[in-house]
């Protein structure tokens, strides 16, 4: 797949205004709220007079009390905040339902690619962690193509590589974005990273195909597990109701577990457009 082309297409579908909004929202979302404290990620730079349309949150009311004029506090981004993308490249991520354009893995890559583009525009050091490979942090705009190349180089391996913890401990605060279908033991995963949550920010991107929730088949079907190769012959018409209950319970538990640990949870359905998912996410 030509990921660069796919990502460019999605970038083109948004207007420049939305791009900048996305970019700033992306900042708001991924970064913490601006702070005056030095070393906390965002630093005060200068004042500028308020113009209509600007965020009223940033108005310095003390200055208004003195001068009776509205001034906006302008901050300089903390260029040290790092972003780590973590990808599940297990075989289950290769699943693609009949109504979907991309497999779950392709969907994850393209979504991450779009986000990476915006991050590099803001010159945030960004790194990718695959199951057997860590890219190292890159923060220049020119590095975008480097990241995209990594998608194409990836082979299918086993599940998530937990060695990323070592990479987190290095060099201060990080935002970690995990793309996976989370069919593994989620409690194990959460327990592993819970200690890190105070210092770092975690976002769980739950990538699912709608056919995994609503079985698309009607007649007797042989299902073969992509990972284990196990088989089962069953009648989807008969089991779909129970199956749906099971899978929805699983998703609910997963979400509860993630949120209760102070992490962020986002569900990405691959039959939805990527830009729609991203937009709704950023809101």
């Amino acid at each position: 797949m030509d990921y660069l082309k796919e990502i460019e297409t999605i970038l083109k579908r948004t207007s420049p205004h939305i791009l900048s909004a996305l970019s700033s929202q992306t900042d708001d979302f991924f970064g913490k709220q601006p702070s005056k404290k030095i070393g906390q990620g965002v630093e005060f730079n200068h004042y500028s007079q308020y113009t209509e349309g600007e965020n009223v949150k940033n108005i310095d009311w003390k200055v208004f009390g003195r001068l009776e004029k509205l001034f906006i506090k302008k901050f300089e981004r903390d260029s040290n905040e790092r972003f780590l993308f973590l990808f599940d490249t297990s075989k289950s991520m290769l699943f693609k339902g009949n109504n979907s354009v991309y497999s779950k893995l392709e969907y994850s890559f393209i979504s991450a690619g779009v986000l990476t583009y915006y991050l590099l525009q803001s010159q945030h050091p960004t790194a990718y962690q695959f199951s057997n490979y860590f890219t190292g942090y890159q923060g220049e705009r020119k590095d975008f193509s480097f990241f995209i190349e990594q998608f194409e180089k990836q082979n299918i391996h086993s599940a998530l590589n937990w060695s990323f913890q070592e990479n987190i401990h290095k060099k201060g605060r990080k935002t970690v974005l995990i793309f996976s279908d989370f069919f593994d033991d989620i409690d194990f995963l959460v327990s592993k990273i819970k200690k890190l949550s105070e210092q770092h920010s975690f976002h769980f991107f739950h990538v699912l195909d709608s056919s995994e929730i609503d079985l698309a088949e009607k007649d007797l079907t042989k299902y073969i597990d992509l990972e284990s190769g196990e088989e089962i012959i069953t009648d989807p018409s008969e089991i779909y109701k129970i199956y749906k209950e099971e899978i929805e319970t699983h998703i609910k538990q997963l979400k509860t577990s993630i949120l209760s640990s102070g992490f962020h949870y986002h569900q990405f359905l691959t039959n939805h457009k990527i830009e729609e998912n991203l937009t709704s996410l950023l809101k």
Partner: peptide, 17 residues
């Protein structure tokens, strides 16, 4: 003729079945 589908995980299918 039984339709063959390669599925991400059959864990929940097995459980339901």
């Amino acid at each position: 003729k039984i339709k063959i589908v390669y599925f991400s995980t059959i864990y929940f299918l097995k459980k339901s079945h």
